[in-house]
């Protein structure tokens, strides 16, 4: 397997993830039908489509939460075989959730520290005794967490239990927890949903900074077409579980099938 540091050395623009002919259904409901696309290193790859199109399901497949009935997932040049969800994080994939999934009772700092989970290897006994290597590990990771906090400009809420934070800040903390893992691939499920214009601008800026400063590859689900056009390099369009478009924002925007899908939804809503 390609380790994370090796993978970093690989050319930007090479393939990081590929899904081949993915089909996923829940009982009678077909969430995804024969969907294929790739994600290249260093790009922001948007996944768009009307509600119920299967975007979150796709992210859950990539993240190992859902196992598709058909199709293959290739990550860093390896074909994945039904991985356990918690192992995905160790492969270098982190995510946020459409409905914020923070550890509500814990502080901002502790949430972000928990994001460092895969980087901490001391055994239980050493942790319990808080001696030597375990102590050093805790302190080193704490520093890393503080860097993330500085990066996201959330110093003021370090110690606040996240359940008490306003929605926009919770979304930011959730991004922080995912970033703390220093993932190679970051999956963001509607990171700007429910935000006002200003909050969306902040979030867009953070996403671009993550890409530029850390070289993280990002898969992004987003509804706001303006944002998608601004920050993504390439876009996949899903509708009723099928891929109906794939290309640069400009290509996708002028595609008649895509326009129809969106207009249809606009009438429904």
């Amino acid at each position: 397997m390609v380790s994370r540091s090796d993978a970093r050395a690989v050319d930007p623009g090479s393939e990081l993830l590929r899904v081949d002919n993915i089909s996923l259904s829940f009982g009678g409901v077909k969430a995804l039908t024969d969907v294929s696309f790739d994600i290249l290193r260093g790009e922001v790859r948007a996944i768009i489509g009307p509600n119920g199109a299967g975007k979150s399901s796709m992210l859950n497949v990539i993240n190992g939460f859902y196992h598709p009935q058909e199709g293959e997932v290739w990550f860093a040049g390896e074909k994945r075989r039904n991985p356990k969800p918690h192992n995905i994080a160790y492969q270098g994939i982190a995510r946020t959730f459409q409905n914020i999934a923070l550890f509500k009772g814990m502080s901002t700092l502790d949430n972000i520290m928990t994001g460092r989970f895969t980087h901490m290897n001391q055994n239980l006994l050493m942790q319990a005794l808080w001696r030597g290597p375990a102590e050093r590990e805790e302190i080193a990771n704490r520093e890393k967490a503080e860097e993330i906090i500085d990066f996201l400009e959330i110093q003021a809420i370090r110690k606040t239990p996240v359940g008490r934070l306003p929605y926009g800040l919770q979304k930011r903390v959730e991004l922080g927890r995912a970033l703390a893992a220093e993932p190679e691939l970051l999956l963001l499920d509607e990171p700007m949903a429910g935000m006002n214009v200003e909050e969306k601008e902040d979030m867009s800026r953070f996403i671009l900074d993550v890409k530029d400063e850390f070289g993280t590859t990002i898969a992004l689900i987003e509804h706001d077409m303006g944002v998608v056009m601004d920050i993504s390099d390439r876009v996949v369009v899903l509708d009723y579980g099928k891929k109906i478009g794939d290309g640069t924002p400009q290509q996708v925007r002028s595609d008649q099938t895509v326009i129809d899908a969106y207009l249809g939804v606009a009438h429904d809503e």
Binding site: N63, P85, H86, A89, A94, R95, F97, T114, G115, R116
Partner: peptide
């Protein structure tokens, strides 16, 4: 209390108590 506040596993215990999906996503085995 100290264990759950200041160690990786302690935080993982609290994390699992709060949200299973999110805990899995950071690599915690339930």
């Amino acid at each position: 209390t100290l264990f759950s506040q200041y160690t990786k596993t302690g935080r993982a215990l609290r994390a699992v108590a709060d949200d299973h999906q999110a805990a899995l996503s950071v690599g915690i085995s339930l």
